[in-house]
Design a binder for these strands. Structure first.
Lengths: 252, 252
DNA sequence: GCCGCTGTGTACGCTGCAGTACATCTTCCG
DNA sequence: CGGAAGATGTACTGCAGCGTACACAGCGGC
C-alpha cells in the first residue's frame, strides 16, 4: 500500500532546487498512511509536515456537536501542516487520511530550520499556502450556494486529480462526512450520476466513466481552484510551456 | 470620517518592534475608505497592503451568477492583501469597505522589501495569515451547518469587535450580501433579535443593546475564531492581563 | 406638500435537505 | 451455511430558506 517511494512525486518537493534537495532529502522519512489515520487533531501541537506522494489527506473541521465539513483536500500537490511555518503550531482542524498511500515527512524543527534560511522552500510553501486558502474560500462559498449534486461532482474531481487511477475507494458514508451532508443525500446524488453513466460504483469502489461530463455537472468551484492552483504552483518539468509559466517568469 | 490617524491603532503595525517601525512608518500613507469602496477586485494585481485603523473591510467572493458570500472580515486587527507576500499577487476575492473609516497602506514593493529582510514583520504577517485562515475555514463550516439567525449574530459580533462603538451603519440588504442569503432572511432574523431586545435598528443603523445575549445566540464559530485570533496575535501594551496574555507568555 | 427613493415588513408557494425509519444486498467470519 | 456487520436503496415528514410579489414607512428633493 505504501506504493513507490520517490519524494519527487510530491510537487512541492519536486519543485525544490538542487541545494535544498541535498539538504532536506536525507531527513525525509517515508511513512505509510492507512485509510482513516488521523495525522493530527484540532488543537494538537504539530510535530511534522507531511508531503503526500500517492495518498490523499482531508482537512476536516469538526463542530462541537459532531457535525463535520471538509475544508480542503491535499494530495501530492501539497503539504499537511502549514501551521508549523505560519507560526501557530496548532490549527483548528483535523487531518485525516482519505485515501491510503504514503507520504514523506519532516520534523517541525527541521522544517523551521530550513524555513529560516529563506530559500526557495519558503517561497514555494507560501505559494502553496495561498493555493490552499483559495481552496478553503471556495469551499466556503460552495457550501453556501451549491447543491449536494454539484458538490459531489466537485469532490470526486478533487479526489481524482490526486490519484493516478480513475477509481477511488470511498464509501458514501465517508463522503457524506466530508461534504457535511447526510449519507442519504450522497446516495441520491451518486445514484443520479450512476444513471447518467458518469460513474459506476459498488460498495465503496467508485469508478469514473465520463470525466468530461463530471466536470460539466460540477459547479464552477472545481475549475476555479484548479486554475488558481496551477497558476500558483506550475509544474516544472514535463509541463507544457503554458501561460502560467510565462507568468511565473515575469514574477521572478 | 477619516478619524484619528495613529498607525498603531492597527494591531499589526502596533506589534512591530522599533527598528521595523522606523523603517516602515515613513512610507505609510493614510487613506480614507468610504463605504462600498472596492480595494481590489477578484483577479486584480494587488498594488498595496492596507492596515485598517477604524475601517472594516470584507473579503467577498462573488460567483459567476452574481451570488456572493463573505469569507472573512478584517479590521484594525489585520491587513488586506496577504496575497502580496504569499507570492500570488492576485486573489480570487473582492475586498470591499463594509464600514467607512481609514487605513494605512504600503506599496507592494515596499512590503516585499521589508519581507525579504525576514524580520519581525514576516513572522507577524504569517501569524496573522493563519488567523485569517482560521476565520475562513470557520466560515466554510458555518455556511454548511448553522442557521441564518446564528450567522447574523456571529456577523454582528465580528463587526462590533472591529468598531469602537456599539452601533453600526449597515442596511439589511448589505448584510444579506455578506452572508450570502436573501434580504428577507436578514429582516426576519433581525426582527427576532429586535423583539428579544438584543438589538435595535432603524434604517441602516443597528445598535447592540445586549451583547452577552448576542454571544449566547451566536453559533460557536464566533468564539472559536476570536480565541484563535487572540492566541495567534496577542495584544501587547494597554491590554488587560487576561488569559490571552498568559498564553502569550507561554509561547515566547 | 407631493413625489420618488431607499429601507423594511409580510406573505405564499416551492424545493432541497435534515431527520428518521426500514428494507435490501454484499461481504466476511465462524 | 448461517448470521452479523457493512454498504446502499427508498420512503415519508418537517422545516429552513429561496424566489417572488407587494405594501408601507421614513427621508430627501423639488
Amino acid at each position: 500500500m505504501a506504493g513507490t517511494s520517490d519524494p519527487q512525486q510530491n510537487h512541492i518537493l519536486h519543485a525544490l532546487p538542487q541545494p535544498e534537495r541535498d539538504r532536506l532529502f536525507p531527513y525525509l522519512k517515508l511513512v505509510a498512511l492507512p485509510l482513516g489515520k488521523v495525522l493530527y487533531e484540532s488543537g494538537d501541537t504539530l510535530r511534522h509536515i507531511y508531503f503526500p506522494t500517492d495518498s490523499i489527506i482531508s482537512l476536516l473541521y469538526v463542530l462541537k456537536d459532531g457535525a463535520s465539513a471538509e475544508i480542503a483536500v491535499v494530495g501530492n500537490d501539497g503539504a499537511i501542516g502549514v501551521a508549523l511555518f505560519m507560526g501557530g503550531e496548532t490549527t483548528t482542524n483535523r487531518a485525516i487520511v482519505q485515501s491510503a498511500g504514503s507520504a514523506y515527512r519532516l520534523t517541525g524543527a527541521r522544517l523551521k530550520r530550513e524555513f529560516e534560511r529563506h530559500g526557495e522552500m519558503l517561497h514555494i510553501l507560501l505559494r502553496y499556502t495561498q493555493a490552499l486558502i483559495t481552496q478553503m474560500t471556495q469551499t466556503a462559498v460552495c457550501n453556501r450556494h451549491h447543491s449536494v449534486d454539484q458538490q459531489l461532482c466537485r469532490w470526486l474531481l478533487l479526489s481524482l486529480d490526486r490519484l493516478s487511477s480513475d477509481e477511488l475507494t470511498m464509501t458514501q458514508e465517508l463522503i457524506s462526512n466530508m461534504l457535511g451532508v447526510r449519507r442519504e443525500g450522497v446516495t441520491e446524488a451518486a445514484g443520479k450520476l450512476q444513471k447518467l453513466g458518469v460513474i459506476s460504483y459498488h460498495r465503496g469502489r467508485i469508478k469514473v466513466l465520463d470525466r468530461p461530463r463530471l466536470e460539466e455537472l460540477s459547479c464552477e468551484c472545481y475549475s476555479v481552484v484548479k486554475q488558481e492552483t496551477d497558476r500558483l504552483l506550475p509544474l516544472r518539468s514535463p509541463a507544457r510551456p503554458s501561460l502560467t509559466r510565462a507568468a511565473q517568469a515575469a514574477h521572478d
